[in-house]
Design a protein around this nucleic acid. Sequence first.
DNA 1: CACCGTTGTAACCATTATAGTTCTAAGTCG
DNA 2: CGACTTAGAACTATAATGGTTACAACGGTG
Lengths: 139, 139
Amino acid sequence: MKQLSTRFSVAVHALSLIALYKEDCTGDFIAGSVNTNPVIIRRIMGMLKKAGLVDVRPGVGGASLRKDPNQISLLEVYRAVNVTERDRLFRIHENSNIHCLVGRNIEHVLQAELNDAQTLMEQRLAQTTIGQLVDRFTK
Amino acid sequence: MKQLSTRFSVAVHALSLIALYKEDCTGDFIAGSVNTNPVIIRRIMGMLKKAGLVDVRPGVGGASLRKDPNQISLLEVYRAVNVTERDRLFRIHENSNIHCLVGRNIEHVLQAELNDAQTLMEQRLAQTTIGQLVDRFTK
DNA sequence: CACCGTTGTAACCATTATAGTTCTAAGTCG
DNA sequence: CGACTTAGAACTATAATGGTTACAACGGTG
């Protein structure tokens, strides 16, 4: 992979629309703003629904937030759309040669470092909410 | 992508070996410790060479470091092996509808947040050196 | 010089993730 | 019922990854 999936930014986009317009945010409307296919939006909305962030059900048009926009952090959205496997950004090669000093220890030692780095990134995402972003859109 | 390429961890592994054993670190030897194909190692060594981190030339076996292991940060290695496109971890969907308030602003506003998060992660990687890791392997 | 081990790299493959499309089924409400 | 919507299966094209085989070129040694 070269970059993380756009599912994350699309999800933020969708949630912002719902927070801002509240009503009549159908999949087609969101798709029109994101400029993509409605099915892409439905897939992402399904993930957000599973994560308990939105309310959306068949038949009735228009999704709604299940939490105050100021209580939805970017980290929650990031986690909801599964951009990384088992919430691990970095991947470490496996099956290193255990008869080698480096091979025997690298996974454990490196994992600690990478976890720290990842955590700092996530903590930053946790500090910003959908509500804050929406405020910035509207002024 | 689900996770970043193992090129990064493999590169750290290779540099650690060279720092530790200094001599006779041929591609085959490194491949044996990493437990992968020598061509994979050669590809990565080529990237590290291009980044000025190692010295390796055809014919003669055994790579060497061009800098003190304590002067090689994990961030340098991370950048050297190109795990992300144009050094951007996050990808934001493009071509949002500019006639929509959210579509018009999301890229700019979200990019600022994601850059901050990425920078924190990278700063953490910059704090650790190959030398420090090697010290941890040997005790 | 010839040989052998090495690096450099092209070419190819299997696997996987992504983003997108088409299509169908089913729910909701006027 | 009919119009609109969500849900999701199935399929496609594209791209990155990790791996493999093969071969050319280099360098030191006998």
